[in-house]
């Protein structure tokens, strides 16, 4: 489903030097999988995630999603490809002047859906995340967990094959975190959406991921399997992340 082939991304530092956020990394995520990206701050996990929908364009390498190399697409083709890749953010990034229903409708308007189809799909998605009764509210009237549910409904609306989640629970308390993770797991199980989730908490990996990549200094140190909440890892990094959790 997702293949990153030898991708590389460096940023200009304020002092004029270069910072290698991601260096020569390859990664494959299978269809229907929940895949975690974990590491300490500055390990390059968010950058790696943002390479998947080309919010960051790699300096080298290929980004293949659904059989398409996104780096080779024109502007319009990339926009169409992105409609197939939902994204959920740590800070929710909802439109403050749109209601919950209008926020969920937003990606569908962009994709040119008909009004009636939008209305139906919005109702469906709000039902899935359990926010039907908040359809007419504005984001400012919601709790953090509710805002993130709107974010998930919005990402899910255009029936994407992939959802990218950038620290989706890091701004939430532990109880809300669990309910959001369950929501994501539910979506994965019911609709087979491939989910890539960035986190710095091993608990998140344990509770919903099938596999995860451990990142350090812009490289994948180890790809681990998670089974029934047990993490099978060998590297020192994995051990220190487990201890931090």
């Amino acid at each position: 489903m997702i293949h990153l082939n030898d991708v590389k991304k460096r940023f200009r530092r304020p002092d004029g030097g270069w910072f290698d956020a991601v260096s020569d990394t390859s990664l494959s995520v299978s269809a229907g999988e929940i895949f975690g990206l974990i590491g300490f701050s500055g390990a390059g996990k968010s950058t790696l995630l943002r390479l998947i929908n080309l919010l960051e364009r790699p300096d080298a390498g290929a980004v293949i999603v659904d059989g398409q190399d996104l780096t080779q697409l024109s502007g319009a083709e990339l926009r169409r490809a992105r409609q197939n890749i939902g994204m959920v953010f740590q800070q929710f990034n909802l439109l403050a002047n749109r209601t919950v229903a209008e926020n969920v409708a937003f990606p569908l308007e962009i994709a040119g859906w008909k009004r009636e189809a939008i209305r139906q799909r919005v109702a469906e998605c709000l039902e899935i995340v359990g926010l039907t009764d908040r359809a007419g509210h504005y984001p400012a009237q919601l709790s953090g967990g509710q805002k993130q549910r709107v974010g998930i409904a919005r990402a899910l609306a255009p029936r994407p094959h992939v959802i990218l989640a950038d620290e989706p629970t890091s701004a939430l308390d532990p109880k809300t975190t669990q309910s959001i993770l369950e929501c994501l797991r539910d979506i994965n199980a019911r609709f087979g959406v491939t989910i890539v989730i960035v986190t710095h908490e091993m608990g998140v990996i344990r509770s919903i991921c099938h596999r995860a990549a451990l990142l350090d200094a812009g490289r994948v140190v180890e790809v681990i399997n998670v089974e029934a909440g047990r993490v099978d890892a060998r590297s020192d990094l994995a051990r220190s992340l487990l201890e931090a959790a």
Binding site: N53, L55, A76, L78, R79, R80, A81, R82, Q83, I85, G86, M87, F89, Q91, N93, L94, L95, A96, F106, P107, I110, A111, R154, P158, L164
Partner: peptide, 12 residues
């Protein structure tokens, strides 16, 4: 981030 979210959704 709000503008970025729109970009990620494929907005022109």
């Amino acid at each position: 981030g709000v503008i970025e979210a729109a970009e990620a959704m494929g907005a022109s």
